[in-house]
């Protein structure tokens, strides 16, 4: 399905072929000597913010040009106009022509793409129906919800029926029913032999889509493999609970009591706040009930008890640890 190190020569039959690709954004190295080869089917692209996902997708879709290395889509450089025929790209940008309706937008994009004008009405009906926008096609883009605009982008990506689809965060802003439909749609495309590269933070949806993931970190491919492995690692990641009590002289006693729980991996005092105890555990729900019990027994006055929220970027970082 997919290989990380590419030794084979580029071939017209290979949907995507990247060889030692690097891309700088000023002083920041967006992609670092990346090599990748995709075969038909769905592949998920995972990585934290700034890991190079969008840079890679922009390079594959010909919006950026590599500083070194080469990229070929079915043997053609995606920067060229010929390469653009082969790639349908739904970017993670939210800039449209606000005064156009969804239908006008897609009709004009079809015209710009060189689709015959007599074919456009039937094609639009078909595509709008596929992405679930048929009933709202006359809505102005400035009045569309994020989910509707997201669908419009996907409709734009499939307008030319390209063999390679690049979807950057396609589930963002889409409701659960829409997500289910989108998953079905992508699976349907897969059966038609298309190659699809999807980036997303929604591991649940990715798992429904594919078992193949490429993980990026600091512009490099760090691993590739089944998505189930990534999910297990995410679920088993320890979380920290912040526990704040009123009397800080009891903090040592509290720490001892908390540590008696076998599910607790460790405790630490929050720097600069001596009445806040951070508790590390893999099973916060079990630790919560234990905490309530010891508070009653030892008469601790708890002012705050919460799982410290992690940014998606940190969650994704955890996937690459170990």
């Amino acid at each position: 399905m997919m290989g990380v190190s590419v030794d084979s020569a580029k071939s017209d039959a290979v949907p995507l072929w990247c060889r030692k690709v690097s891309k700088w954004h000023g002083n920041f190295l967006g992609l670092n000597d990346l090599s990748l080869e995709l075969r038909p089917g769905i592949t998920a692209l995972l990585g934290s913010n700034g890991s190079g996902k969008s840079t890679l997708m922009n390079l594959i879709s010909g919006q950026l040009f590599p500083d070194s290395g080469s990229i070929h889509v079915f043997g053609i450089d995606p920067w060229t106009w010929q390469g653009k025929q082969l790639v349908g790209y739904s970017p993670d940008l939210d800039y449209f022509y606000p005064s156009w309706s969804i239908k006008d937008f897609l009709a004009r994009m079809a015209c710009l793409a060189g689709i015959e004008s007599k074919r456009v009405p039937s094609l639009l009906n078909e595509i709008l129906s596929v992405v679930g926008l048929l009933s709202v096609q006359t809505t102005l883009l400035r009045r569309c919800s994020l989910g509707m605009r997201q669908r419009a982008k996907i409709a734009h990506a499939i307008l030319m029926d390209p063999p390679l689809l690049i979807l950057d965060e396609p589930f963002r802003g889409i409701d659960p029913v829409g997500r289910r439909d989108l998953v079905q749609l992508l699976l349907q495309f897969q059966t038609l032999g298309k190659t699809i590269l999807v980036s997303s933070h929604e591991l649940e949806e990715i798992e429904k889509l594919t078992d193949q993931v490429v993980m990026l970190r600091s512009g490099r491919v760090v691993s590739a493999g089944p998505v189930s492995r990534a999910r297990d690692r995410l679920l088993n990641k320890p979380v920290e609970i912040a526990l704040e009590i009123q009397a800080n002289e009891k903090i040592r006693l509290l720490a001892q009591s908390v540590l008696s729980n076998s599910e607790v991996l460790g405790v630490r005092l929050l720097e600069g706040e001596k009445h806040v105890l951070m508790v590390l555990t893999r099973k916060p729900e079990l630790v919560f009930s234990h905490l309530v019990m010891i508070s009653i027994e030892n008469n601790f006055l708890i002012r705050r008890l919460e799982v410290v929220d992690e940014a998606p970027a940190e969650v994704m970082e955890s996937l690459f640890e170990g």
Partner: peptide, 15 residues
């Protein structure tokens, strides 16, 4: 300025 160049650049025609 409107950051809509992408819609033009993604089309299979010479720049």
């Amino acid at each position: 300025e409107g950051k809509t160049l992408f819609w033009l650049f993604s089309k299979p025609v010479p720049r």
